[in-house]
């Protein structure tokens, strides 16, 4: 039973860590895109060719939104990852050194249960941040598409700017869709652990009886 459980534990730990690392990467992308939007808007002003006040306001608000989402995204991911550091190190060190004793495995499971219990709110919040990030990128993709369609007739032909805008549209939309799929996976993770917490809670009655029996 232990070997199977060790494998299952390892798979879940790796899956969750990969999910968090990808989230951090996409959070950093949202942060970078947000800042890029703000900076390019100000550069237009510096170059003496400012866009209309409405467009400037929309761009700056979009940039601020992206920056904020990205910042919190990275922050929350890092916080969750930090809590797993000890378990990951122990797991890595022990699995390479022969069979894992049942107590060691149970200790890891206790650590994961405690980690989830402590970070439950944060992990659920992460699902919402991922959705917000996905919507941000999707909106950017749609904005790129609209911008490209509007710029196309005005341009003498498919110039570099128009190609760049049309290229950015599927990229941003794609990142948005991947990000939303992360949110689905975070929900699945949280759902799995909610069931486990419930099962552990139900088992407490038998543990209580074992402690109180004479």
């Amino acid at each position: 039973m232990t070997d199977h459980t060790v494998q299952q534990f390892g798979k879940e730990l790796r899956s969750f860590v990969v999910l968090i690392l990808l989230n951090m990467a996409f959070g950093a992308l949202a942060l970078a895109f947000g800042m890029q939007i703000i900076i390019t808007t100000f550069l237009h002003y510096a170059a003496g060719a400012p866009p209309s006040p409405v467009i400037s306001t929309v761009r700056i608000l979009t940039g601020i939104t992206g920056t904020c989402i990205g910042f919190f995204w990275v922050l929350v991911s890092a916080k969750i990852l930090r809590g797993l550091r000890g378990i990951r190190h122990e797991y890595r060190d022990s699995t390479g050194a022969g069979p894992v004793p049942a107590e060691t495995l149970t200790g890891w499971i206790v650590a994961m249960v405690a980690h989830y219990r402590a970070n439950r709110t944060l992990i659920w919040r992460m699902t919402f941040i991922s959705i917000a990030g996905g919507i941000f990128f999707l909106a950017l993709g749609i904005a790129n598409l609209v911008q490209g369609i509007l710029a196309f007739p005005a341009a003498a032909g498919p110039g570099f700017d128009v190609i760049a805008i049309f290229g950015a549209a599927p990229l941003n939309a794609g990142i948005g869709l991947v990000t939303i799929s992360f949110a689905v996976r975070f929900r699945r993770y949280a759902g799995t652990w909610d069931v486990r917490l419930k099962l552990a809670g139900e088992g407490e009655e038998s543990l209580k009886e074992a402690l109180e029996s004479r």
Partner: peptide
């Protein structure tokens, strides 16, 4: 606790 992984849902 090992049953949480053996019998419970998997991720």
């Amino acid at each position: 606790y090992q049953g949480l992984f053996d019998k419970g849902p998997a991720f």
